[in-house]
């Protein structure tokens, strides 16, 4: 991953707020999953969220595009507050792309159809134009030759790159990554991370739940550590890894870095 070293220097963070979360709580039945989350994300930020399993990190980013509903507090994305209002939800979902752990490509459609589906049906882009844009993004993730295959014929790493391209086809302003490399074989992780680094270099606002600490160190401008539904610590990557303040952070880092 040669380009990792140069990634951070070229990226700038603006003063414009992309996402604001104020005093947000969420419960699953009786279980308090997210507790009093306060968080402001500026445009162009690359945030890595880490923490032990069950800490609520996936749930947090899934609240941002309303795949999960929060019960208390406010989430404001692109100046639209997330409420039960379906129009607002649809507007936010058009601007926020999401990449899942298990790719979730549509197995009955070809790669090209996967990429053009949302632009055609949601944005009403003409088919030819959508296909042109799709090929552009497939070239960017370096698999234009797979356009006419089905997802089942691709490797995990290729599928995840397609999934990233599929989100980009909607021209999102914010991208959410929910453990994008955890379901991949080790030799395929770097091809996906490379694409994500390339994306960060374009100035995309990114929130990424991941355990890839190399990626966090090189690309993120901020690392957030969560445990038991709370934000425990956040800092710039250098400080976060070299000089963690909280005991829970220290324990977590020692567990994931020890081997």
């Amino acid at each position: 991953m040669a380009n990792l070293d140069t990634a951070q220097g070229t990226m700038e963070v603006s003063d414009e707020v992309a996402i604001q979360i104020i005093g947000m709580h969420k419960w699953y039945g009786d279980f308090h999953v997210l507790k009093d989350i306060d968080m402001t994300v500026y445009r162009g930020e690359r945030i890595v969220i880490c923490g032990p399993s069950g800490s609520g990190k996936s749930t947090l980013i899934r609240c941002i595009n309303r795949l999960e509903e929060h019960q208390q507090g406010q989430i404001i994305v692109d100046n639209i507050e997330l409420t039960g209002d379906l129009k607002g939800i649809d507007a936010i979902r058009r601007e926020v792309g999401m990449v899942f752990q298990h790719f979730n490509l549509f197995p009955h459609l070809t790669i090209l159809e996967n990429l053009t589906l949302a632009p055609i049906w949601v944005r009403k882009t003409p088919k030819a134009e959508a296909e042109e844009a799709a090929m552009h993004y497939l070239e960017r993730v370096k698999i234009p030759e797979q356009a006419d295959k089905y997802p089942g014929q691709l490797s995990g790493g290729q599928q995840q790159r397609v999934a990233i391209a599929r989100s980009l086809c909607m021209n999102p302003r914010i991208m959410l990554f929910d453990e994008p490399t955890s379901a991949l074989d080790p030799e395929m992780i770097s091809e996906v991370l490379d694409v994500m680094v390339g994306l960060a270099e374009t100035g995309m606002t990114m929130l990424c739940v991941t355990h890839e600490m190399g990626f966090a160190r090189k690309v993120a401008n901020r690392v957030i550590f969560m445990d038991e539904g709370e934000i425990i610590e956040q800092n710039e990557p250098e400080e976060f890894f070299n000089n963690p303040k909280s005991d829970r952070t220290k324990l977590f880092l020692s567990q994931i870095l020890s081997h």
Binding site: D90, F100, N104, A118, V122, S167
Partner: peptide, 17 residues
């Protein structure tokens, strides 16, 4: 799988689509 619903929802597809 639930992931199919989520991926489609995350793209902003309506219920009928």
């Amino acid at each position: 799988p639930k992931g199919q619903f989520e991926a489609a929802q995350a793209m902003g597809l309506s219920y009928w689509k």
